[in-house]
Design a protein around this nucleic acid. Structure first.
Lengths: 187, 187
DNA sequence: TTTATTTCTAAACGATTGTTTAGTTATTGG
DNA sequence: CCAATAACTAAACAATCGTTTAGAAATAAA
């Protein structure tokens, strides 16, 4: 028995996510969010609480999107080749778009690694850990590898993935492709 | 015929650099700088102009420090081994310290890559270009490599260096060591 | 149509941002 | 010792930050 919301909460969250993704947390102001989301500050606060919780929601939204890629990754049966495909899939979204924003999670990791924001760090860690698990799983498919080698290579690939995500913002598609190919030559 | 400065400009600049290095530009406030540098806002402004120019000075200070490592790198005669040594030297400072701040230039690159701050970008580009030049030079010492291979490997190493710097903030010394060894396995 | 309830607009909130200014303190040269 | 000059302290500046609030507009049920 009252007025209806004139916006879709998922749609405006998606827009907020893209803005945080591009500019980071600190640089993105409520004024910018207002403009990008197309709704009033009041509406933002009534739907998402405050800036920080809106950021956390954006992170979760991103993770649920990434989860699709992660599931495909997990379900593969080709060992190292699956990891390579995952690397390509991770930067694939950037290949199409005009503006490369890298990986939202990695960007956030870099922005928050000196802070004491436990909520954000928690979001990061759960993702990194599940990623590491899958990579180890894939590497273990090759029965020739010792346990030590598996762990060493997993660390290598995790760090390479982190670096790739960071570098994907400023490098060309060709450079990125070369990098991935070279990375897997070493295994 | 007047009062003397009660602080050393190079010393306080070094302290400002460390704060920017750790927290980035946006997160570091004048209040934080006041406290860290141990001098009043007035003194900061009279010595360095404003926050932005203080940041640029901090970048230059960092670059001049890195230049020592870069010169050693350039003067080597061992080709790829020199590059590897340079990679180790680049993260060496982190090995000792309690708090890993990564590479100030890479951190800045990541923070500013979506902005239009030409002065900061200029500082970044000159460094990246000179780095790429040296890497190509080193790779060319191996006369077996084709021109194409050299360029491809140079791009690979530059991206790996970028990624390493980004990851060095959140990874352990062991992981970093493993990563570098793996990176140079098949060049 | 009226009334209750919710969403909207827009202005204002206190706190913090980077920056400036007025006034005090200290040091140097005469 | 005195006067001139530079560096200090501390308060205030306007602008912007994230956040809240009061009142108008709109919609559903009676």
């Amino acid at each position: 028995m009252a007025r209806k919301k004139q916006y879709n909460e998922v749609e405006v969250l998606e827009k907020a996510m893209n803005l945080f993704w591009k500019n980071g947390y600190k640089t993105t102001s409520m004024q910018m969010l207002e403009q990008e989301m197309g709704i009033n500050k009041f509406s933002i606060y009534s739907s998402f609480g405050n800036k920080h919780s809106l950021f956390l929601e954006s992170l979760k939204q991103y993770k649920s999107r990434v989860n699709t890629v992660l599931k495909k990754f997990k379900n593969g049966t080709n060992g190292i080749d699956d990891i390579k495909t995952f690397f390509y899939d991770s930067v694939r979204s950037n290949f199409k778009k005009e503006n490369e924003k890298g990986c939202f999670l990695t960007n956030t990791y870099n922005e928050f690694c000196e802070t004491e924001d436990e909520l954000v760090k928690e979001q990061m860690d759960t993702f990194m850990n599940s990623l590491k698990e899958i990579i180890i799983e894939k590497l273990q498919m090759d029965s020739n590898k010792s346990k030590e080698t598996v762990l060493k290579q997993a660390n290598y690939l995790l760090l390479a993935k982190h670096g790739l995500a960071a570098a994907a913002r400023v490098n060309t598609n060709e450079e990125i492709e070369d990098y991935i190919e070279m990375t897997f030559k070493n295994l």
